[in-house]
């Protein structure tokens, strides 16, 4: 047995028939990859029925938040029925109100409205993760429990690496941050780099005395990114 930081499970409904299902799925991915990569894990909702006992025990071994697209709350119902009670339950239509009108199901058609909706929901999920963590104590885990989630959903996407004062620094979700900057109008040459630095500082701690070096390194990485070269991993 060992003690480890509690990780919060985030289960998305991912409903295929409605845009809000796509928003729930993408927002959950954003939280796993970018907003709270070190403290969140997930599992495919259908695995509760199709999977094994380890997978069905997911909500018993992790404080879990469900993210549903609509008031039918399939993710909440499925999780509570097959796995255990949830610590939080969010509904995309409650979060967005009418601002999800015009959103799309397919990510091939993503518009600015889709992107804004995904970010709004992701930030709400992250806030809920923080709330749940605040009331959860670190837990004891066994090696068997630690391997219970075997589908790989809990593995955060690696970030990009930049070099600061000769040292490599990992930035979670750097590619996503660059995607967001590009979508938000940061030119391909990165301008003076201030917008890049500000975007990264939202998710990554940057010491004041290192800001100039970060800005320079991010400019270089962003220009490469816009030329199709991914940030180093």
């Amino acid at each position: 047995m060992s003690s480890e930081r509690t990780k919060v499970g985030v289960i998305s409904c991912s409903g295929e028939a409605i845009p809000e299902g796509s928003i729930s799925r993408l927002a959950t991915r954003r939280v796993l990859e970018l907003l709270r990569p070190d403290v969140t894990v997930t599992l495919c909702l259908p695995l509760f029925l199709a999977g094994n006992d380890g997978e069905r025990n997911f909500a018993r071994t992790h404080p879990t938040i469900t993210v549903d697209g609509c008031p039918k709350q399939c993710a909440r119902w499925g999780t509570e029925q097959h796995s255990g009670p949830v610590s939080g339950a969010l509904v995309v239509t409650d979060i967005l109100g009418t601002s999800n009108e015009g959103c799309h199901c397919s990510s091939r058609e993503l518009s600015e409205q889709d992107t804004a909706a995904v970010w709004a929901v992701a930030e709400r999920i992250a806030a809920e993760v923080d709330r749940v963590l605040a009331v959860s104590a670190p837990r004891e885990v066994t090696s068997a429990e630690g391997s219970a989630i075997s589908c790989g959903c809990s593995t955060p996407t690696p970030g990009g690496t930049i070099t600061i004062n000769g040292q490599e620094r990992q930035i979670a979700g750097l590619q996503l941050i660059f995607d967001q900057c590009a979508a938000g109008g940061v030119p391909a040459d990165g301008g003076d780099g201030a917008a890049l630095l500000n975007a990264v500082k939202i998710y990554h701690r940057v010491e004041r005395e290192e800001e100039a070096e970060y800005q320079k390194a991010l400019l270089h990485a962003y220009r490469n990114f816009r030329c199709g070269i991914q940030p180093g991993r």
């Binding site: 409904c13 409903g15 295929e16 697209g69 399939c74």
Partner: peptide, 12 residues
């Protein structure tokens, strides 16, 4: 057409 797989998980 498609439908939400989660609805089946729910037993709708």
């Amino acid at each position: 057409a498609t439908l939400c797989l989660a609805l089946l998980v729910k037993g709708d």
